[in-house]
Structure formats: C-alpha cells, structure tokens
Simulated assay, not measured.
Amino acid sequence: MTSTSTPPGLARFNAIEEHAAFTALHEACASTAWAKRLLAARPYASPEALYAANDAATAALTAEDLAEAMAGHPPIGRPKPGDPTSAREQRGMAGASDALKAEMLELNLAYQEKFGHVFLICATGRTGEQMRDAVRERIGNTPEREREIVRTELGKINRIRLARLVEED
C-alpha cells in the first residue's frame, strides 16, 4: 500500500491500469521488453526501487531490444517536431551555431552509417559542443564497445524520464 512518503506521481503510476502504465513506460523508453519488465514489478515502494528496476531491465536488453529503444530517439540536433521531451533533453543544441548544427548532422550520419543506429547520448545538461565532442570520440569505438556505452546512456535517459514521471503531481 502507498505510504505518505510515496511521491504522488509514483503512487499514481502504481495505481493506474496496466495499459496506461505500459503507455507511460513506453513513452519513456521505446523498448517493449524494458517496459514489460518494469510493468511486471509494480507496485514500487519508492522511486529508488523503480530506478533499480530500470537499471536491471536496461542491463537485460538484448541487441534487438536496444535497437528498438534507440529507434525511439531522434538524432541529436533534430528533436522530434512537437515532442517537448526530446526538445527539452536536447536543449544544449537549441542555441548552437549553424556551423555546429551542420557538423552534428554530418557526424550523426557518419555514426549512423558505421553503427546502424542513431548516436545516443544522455543530452540533458550537455552543450552542443560536448555532444559533438562525444560523437567524435565514440565514432572510433568498436560496435561491441559502443553498444555498452549506448546501454549506459539509455539507462541514464530512462532514469531522467522516470524521475519526471514519478515527480509529476
């Protein structure tokens, strides 16, 4: 049962019907396997329990699950039109110069050609220059190394999105 210390958003998430909870999770991460794992562990006693479940579910994602999750993320510098989440998360690119935006587009395309998916980074709080430097550095990785970095970055993104979900009033 819900204690008085349970944040209102978490109490609501624990109480909503399964389809609505799945939809909320799927908006946070496009991986169906991830959303189903988190859904199956409801109710959560605390935000920390939810974040721990995120960490475990992210670690358990197969290559196919990771690909499904990444397909839900727009390229850095091109947030989905009308999507306040991707616009907020990519705020560091909003004021970037045209030259930086053009360079990011080139780097995104080169990265996608090499790895077969978008460049995924937890962009929250990062500047355009920091994201550019990260893609420049990571494009030299092996596919195996990059997959593990992507998994880590996805876990960070999911935590931020889950925090927003459980903190909402």
Rank of each mutant, 00 (worst) to 15 (best):
G92H: 05
K114Q: 08
L120S: 02
R159T: 15
N158L: 11
N54E: 05
R136Y: 00
A87K: 13
T2Y: 08
I121R: 10
D133Q: 13
R159Q: 13
T62P: 04
E137S: 13
S86H: 01
L39M: 04
L25V: 04
E68M: 07
H19G: 10
R78K: 14
T127M: 01
P143T: 07
I149L: 12
I139C: 00
D55Y: 00
P43L: 02
E64A: 15
G92T: 02
A94V: 07
L105T: 13
K36G: 04
E113T: 15
E129F: 03
G116F: 00
G155W: 01
Q112P: 01
T2K: 12
A49T: 11
R37A: 15
I157H: 00
W34D: 02
L109A: 15
I16W: 07
Q112D: 15
A60R: 01
E144R: 08
I121T: 09
K156Q: 14
C122H: 12
T152Y: 12
A163Q: 13
F22K: 08
R136I: 09
I157M: 06
Q130T: 01
T124V: 15
S5L: 11
R132C: 08
I157C: 00
R136V: 10
A56T: 12
A53D: 05
P47W: 06
A15Y: 01
A52N: 11
R138D: 08
K114G: 01
L109M: 14
T152F: 14
G116M: 04
G77I: 01
E148K: 10
A102D: 14
A134W: 01
E103A: 12
S5H: 14
L154G: 07
L105Y: 09
T127V: 00
T58G: 09
A28I: 11
H117D: 05
E64I: 09
H26M: 12
A87Q: 14
G116R: 12
G72S: 02
S5Y: 04
V166C: 08
T152P: 00
R42N: 04
A49F: 00
K80N: 09
A123N: 03
K80L: 15
V166M: 05
N141C: 05
I16L: 14
S31R: 09
E129S: 08
R42L: 06
L61N: 02
Y44L: 09
E103P: 01
A24N: 10
A28E: 10
E27P: 02
P8C: 04
A21E: 05
L162W: 09
S31C: 07
A28D: 13
A28M: 13
P43W: 04
F13N: 03
S86N: 00
G95H: 10
L107F: 06
F22A: 07
A21V: 00
S86R: 05
R88D: 11
E17A: 11
A67W: 00
R136K: 15
N54H: 06
T4W: 09
P143F: 02
A96P: 02
L61V: 02
F13Y: 03
L61A: 07
R126N: 04
A94F: 05
K80Y: 12
K114S: 06
H26L: 14
L25A: 05
R136W: 01
G72V: 01
L10Q: 02
A123K: 05
L105F: 13
C122V: 00
F13W: 03
E146D: 08
H26V: 07
G9R: 03
E167H: 11
V118D: 07
